[in-house]
Amino acid sequence: MTREIGYLEALNEALLAEMARDESIVLIGENIRGGFRPEAMGIEEAFGANRIIDMPISEAAMTGIATGQALAGGRPVVHFQVSSLIFPAFDQLVNQAAKLPLMLGGQGHIAATYLVMGCGASGGRAGQHSDSPHAYLVHAGIKSVAPATPGDAKGLLISALREPDPVAVFVPAVAGAIRGPVEAAADPIPLGQGVVRRAGGDVTIVAVGQMVADALDVAEALAGEGIEALVWDPRSLLPLDRDGLAAAVAATGRVVLFDDTARTCGIAAELAATIAERCHGSLKAPLRRVTRADVTLPYSAPLEAEVLPGRGHLEAAVREVVAWVPGSSSVPG
């Protein structure tokens, strides 16, 4: 049965279902008890106070505690209330959780989930509360998913909760306003499987995480002018569905990457490298990236709009790629 629910409710359903199935799952985070966080509702009532741990403001410790719980047979879910809070925990994420499994030589594994809330901008939250930090953790080798819809949020979180390794789940800052169809059943969506969100033959837009909704809007608007865009959503950033990406690129031969992580060494950069290696023969035009600019997000609205990857930027890039013929400039205009 499918119902229309909110993104945060979908995360909550995944947590409740998996916590019922697997009693080693424990949620740990700041201000997660008592109804302040919709995604953490009902856990204490259903499973007791030992399954939901309210932490002092100690992100490094909470992340390390999760590693310890995991090594001792638990399955912690670490809740970061804002995406930038992974930075105070960086040593524990990168030097410890990401590196220990290999260094232990297979003696143990770390089944931990990082629920990274508040990714991206949502209007005026400025430099330290608007990060899209996906690439930092991907770069460190931490499995990562960026669900765009409530349905994917539920399915991908369930998979994360069944994975024997650390998995980061990146949740958009605007999640509270996203609604969509979600299966009542707890069906996992496997890691490493992208999805075609919209079919089209003229151009392929690869949109990551919170950018998918904007990409679909732009695609609909362009359809009115006869430009049919295929929108492909990788969903999982590590592992990445390279075959799915190559197929989506081959379908049109013209590509725009739409991503809110930083331009330099961001997710779009990795996608572009993959396309360059795998899809050279099917490209009919140079690919274009529309990303966040390589800057701290300025507070003021007109500045924010200038440096975030917006619909206007995407539309312009799509038109350029669609119009490209041999001899046109290969440098973005």
Binding site: V295, P302, E304, G310
Partner: peptide, 26 residues
């Protein structure tokens, strides 16, 4: 006055270089 959008990349660096900082396009 509001800040000029064209200045959105200003102040990231005390000394800048061509193409730095980049994005969102080009």
């Amino acid at each position: 006055p509001w800040p000029e959008p064209a200045t959105a990349r200003d102040h990231m660096y005390a000394r800048t270089y061509p193409g730095l900082p980049a994005g969102p396009r080009g």
